[in-house]
Amino acid sequence: MHEWSLACELVRQAETEARRRGALRVHSVKASVGVLTGILPELFQRAYEMARQGTCLEEAPLEIEVEAVRARCPECGREVTLHSPALVCPDCSGLGLEVLGGDGIFLTSLELDVAEAAGGNHV
């Protein structure tokens, strides 16, 4: 259910940025969702589609990239990549892994049309 409030925050930040850059049109929005956030990409997608209504993102589809967990094992010292939230070292079964990434949710980029300096005569 927290997908809704995060989708509203995504729309708010994307709109602010598009306006700041003087965008004439936003073509697409990209977001990254870490496995440790527990956010369901499908629900986040649907929440975004509702949250963008009436904004400059109405024509901009959302691409979600799921970010795996990166962690360091205190037992064997290796840096590992995990695709589930269970923090167990796949190499030595060590516990208490130090999380290095995959625990956040980000607006990663916007693809947009921006105006160049006003035209006139050009070659």
């Binding site: 995060l6 004439l24 949710i105 980000f106 607006l107 980029s109 693809e111 160049e116």
Partner: peptide, 21 residues
Amino acid sequence: EHNHDPRHTHREEAVLYRNLL
């Protein structure tokens, strides 16, 4: 001379990596 919308546009990717939390 341009008799259409004089603004020229270009498409760009704005890389942001903004934390939503």
